[in-house]
Design a protein around this nucleic acid. Structure first.
Length: 430
RNA sequence: GCUGAGGUAGCCUAGUCCGGUAAGGCGCUGGCCUUGAAAGCCAGUGGCGCAAGCCUCGGGAGUUCAAAUCUCCCCCUCAGCGCCA
């Protein structure tokens, strides 16, 4: 949610920023918001003028009564007020509701360093790291590879749950856990606090953390309950301090979330291939930070470099892209994606998304900053970044470290988590 | 799911039966005092508004000149019971 003060003080600056998103709707909504805000304040004024009259009469009434004087005259004076007030308040409520609707619909302001572009094809490559490996000639798609080695079952997952679900089996499960544990350990060493959040959220906190369109397109809802399966642990962690005041001296707060993530994504490209790349359910280790506004650009880079370090230590080649205006979501002011190199597909594909949401989420959630028991007027910034998402990252590992004879090398840093195992499929011990 | 108790300002609490416009404490800020600090004492300390003023007692509706207080509906939390990995 945008800061209404800022909108009132610098409407043209805000409009120009919104215009960079090249979405006519936002500009229309913004124009309407300016008008509605004025109408709302006027309606508020009218209603409070009438309340002042009412209160004055009520006070006189009270005093007259205490003094034992007659109150009939006062009662007659006040007779008409409640009905008038009801009308004025109804008017005020209409404006207020629309004003809130518009405020909730408008996206975050873009950081100046976000490049202009129409869609994800125009994201700006910031840098590349690592050797782009080549896949062995006969390497099958990872789905087939996993099925043929009894490390996954996508056919039966479709039978019982539908496309986009999977059974991961055997050593792949251990690899999945190893990758997560390695990522978590790395973050803990950097001072992040591990957190297992709720996997479902109520609507109210959820509206604070995400684009309202996600309720239609992304989130699964529990039937008959006010609960949604989380699409990422970013969401429950952001909502953690809803309505609270954060102690300034204790910022920044760094969290390392671990959770499954559930996504419908019918608004996206659908589930586009067999396997474990684009799925309705996955696991993610997430970085999340609450900080003072002046620190967020620096911490944004820090989160990015944590995710890069993780990929470097696995030996996975990647590139960092600065996500352009046309591909940036509603909530972020600036976003980097890290795209891993997938040797069999011969292309970079998204593994990490690293966003600075500035004060947008915090304001929607009613989170403020304050000092030693004093409620402050400050609003913290929030940032989030993938550390690792599985099984997608496992697909990158499979494609990157597959050998000619159909085995998969295990990066050295993961071996301690796998009892020293060097490659998959492991010799079966019975 | 059932029964009961609750939701009041940054935090804790009183007020609710019996309607009259949020009391007190903690914390915080300033002042007095002190070599300094603590203690003690005094004052200030929710939101909006240029201001007069208005709003704020979980949310909404109603009764009333007037609602934290009365009526109705809803939400949430806790405790006990039930169920349960």
């Amino acid at each position: 949610m945008l800061d209404i003060e800022r909108i009132r003080n610098d409407p043209e600056g805000v409009r120009q920023n919104l215009a960079r998103r090249r979405n006519e709707l936002y500009l229309k909504q913004f124009t309407e918001l300016l008008a509605i805000d004025r109408d709302w304040r006027k309606a508020q004024q009218d209603a409070s003028d009438l309340r002042r009259q009412r209160n004055a009469i009520a006070r006189e009434f009270s005093e007259a009564k205490k003094a034992g004087k007659a109150t009939d005259g006062l009662a007659r004076q006040a007779e008409a007020i409640p009905a008038q007030l009801t009308e004025l308040e109804a008017r005020e409520a209409v404006f207020e509701a629309r004003r809130r609707e518009l405020l909730m619909a408008l996206p975050n302001l873009l950081d100046d360093s976000v490049p202009y572009g129409k869609d994800d094809t125009e994201n700006q490559v910031a840098r590349e790291w690592g050797e782009r490996r080549e896949a062995p000639k006969d390497l099958p798609p990872h789905g087939e590879f996993l099925e043929s080695h009894q490390m996954g079952d996508f056919e039966r997952a479709r039978k019982v749950s539908g496309a986009g679900f999977y059974y991961l089996e055997g050593p792949m499960v251990l690899l999945d856990m190893a990758v997560q544990r390695f990522a978590m350990d790395l973050l803990v060493r950097k001072g992040f606090t591990p957190v297992i959040p709720p996997y479902m959220l109520r609507r109210a906190p959820y509206e604070g953390v995400t684009d309202l369109a996600d309720f239609e397109n992304v989130m699964y809802r529990i039937e008959g309950e006010d609960l949604y399966l989380i699409a990422t642990s970013e969401h429950p962690i952001a909502a953690l301090f809803m309505g609270e005041i954060l102690e300034e001296d204790r910022l920044p707060l760094r969290w390392a979330g671990i959770s499954p993530c559930f996504r419908k994504e019918i608004g996206g490209h659908g589930v586009d291939q067999k396997g474990a790349f684009r799925v309705h359910q996955f696991h993610k280790i997430e970085q999340f930070v609450f900080c003072q506004p002046e620190d967020s650009p620096r911490i944004h880079e820090e989160l990015l470099s944590n995710a890069e370090e993780f990929l470097q230590r696995l030996g996975l080649a990647y590139r960092v892209v600065n996500v352009c205006t046309g591909d940036l979501g509603v909530v972020a002011a600036k976003k980097y994606d890290i795209e891993g190199w997938f040797p069999r597909q011969k292309q970079y594909r998204e593994l990490v998304s690293c966003s600075n949401c500035t004060d947008y989420q915090a304001r929607r959630l009613g989170i403020r900053t304050g000092k030693q028991g004093k409620p402050g007027k400050g609003v913290p910034h929030t940032l989030n970044s993938t550390m690792v998402a599985t099984p997608r990252t496992l697909v990158a590992l499979v494609e990157s470290f597959a050998t000619e004879d159909g085995r998969i090398g295990i990066p050295e840093v993961l071996r301690p988590y796998l009892g020293g195992l060097h490659e998959l499929p492991a010799p079966v011990a019975r």
